[in-house]
């Protein structure tokens, strides 16, 4: 493939939305109330819409007839490049929300930079996504504050979720070889530059929510290189089920 770095770079971005969208999709109809149910479904819907734009572009870059669905649903476990954070399970609403906020805060900063990409398609996609993700971030940060500064029970639950998920945040700022190549070409976002602003902002929200900012310095990584947690296999089993059971059909 001529543009392999660009192809891998797009997958690195889109797989986060794909896997997070899939996780949120599990919850549809099971939310704590109708309003949050609608909001989580809506976020999932936005994320899959974004995934389609990215994968349609990636298909063009690949230039071998691969469709958005082939890319989304017919890769092997080790070929998914999402960060570990987004594949973490919906243990309870605190984990769902904590995961969402820790990702949204990053996602928004990332898209702001991606808008400046010299690749016009990526810049246009970022421009479209940023409106949606601003809403996601407002929703999740508001809920962090509600749960943190709500009841003793909600505070304990969201604190536990943030503490457990914290170890997956550092990976957001790691770079793969494709990332580095794309940054050098002015196409990609240098995520290492976002790290301080991210932790500052996240700490601000956690403090406003009367929560403790975790102090742990132990982090996990691997997702960007296809080394995932055990959760991913099950996510893919559902995501890929139809395409695997009924190959080469139109739906």
């Amino acid at each position: 493939m001529k543009n392999e770095n660009l192809y891998n770079y797009i997958l690195g971005i889109a797989d986060n939305s794909l896997i997070l969208g899939q996780r949120l999709g599990e919850l549809c109809g099971h939310g704590p109330n109708l309003e949050t149910d609608i909001a989580c479904t809506n976020i999932s819907l936005d994320l899959f819409g974004q995934v389609r734009s990215y994968f349609q572009y990636a298909g063009k870059i690949a230039g071998d007839g691969r469709s958005e669905d082939d890319i989304a649903m017919l890769r092997k476990e080790r070929d998914y490049k999402n960060v570990l954070l987004v594949e973490q399970p919906n243990t309870n609403f605190a984990y769902t929300l904590g995961r969402q906020f820790l990702f949204d805060a990053y996602h928004l900063m990332f898209l702001r930079e991606l808008q400046k990409s010299t690749d016009l398609t990526l810049s246009a996609i970022a421009n479209k996504c940023i409106k949606e993700v601003s809403y996601h971030e407002r929703f999740s940060s508001d809920w962090i504050k509600r749960l943190g500064d709500g009841t003793d029970e909600s505070k304990a639950k969201i604190q536990e979720a943030i503490n457990d998920l914290w170890m997956y945040t550092d990976e957001l700022f790691h770079q793969t070889d494709a990332d580095k190549a794309m940054v050098a070409e002015g196409i990609g976002v240098d995520v290492t530059q976002l790290k301080d602003a991210y932790y500052n902002y996240v700490s601000e929200v956690l403090e406003a929510a009367t929560l403790q900012v975790p102090e742990s310095k132990y982090f996990h990584k691997g997702g960007k290189h296809g080394i995932h947690t055990e959760h991913l296999g099950y996510i893919l089993a559902e995501l890929q089920y139809m395409q695997r059971a009924y190959p080469n059909m139109q739906w």
């Binding site: 949050t36 504050k145 509600r146 749960l147 709500g150 029970e153």
Partner: peptide
């Protein structure tokens, strides 16, 4: 039932 603590938190907040 699983959502009760969430709704309570929203009210309290």
């Amino acid at each position: 039932e699983r959502g009760e603590w969430v709704r309570d938190a929203a009210m309290a907040h």
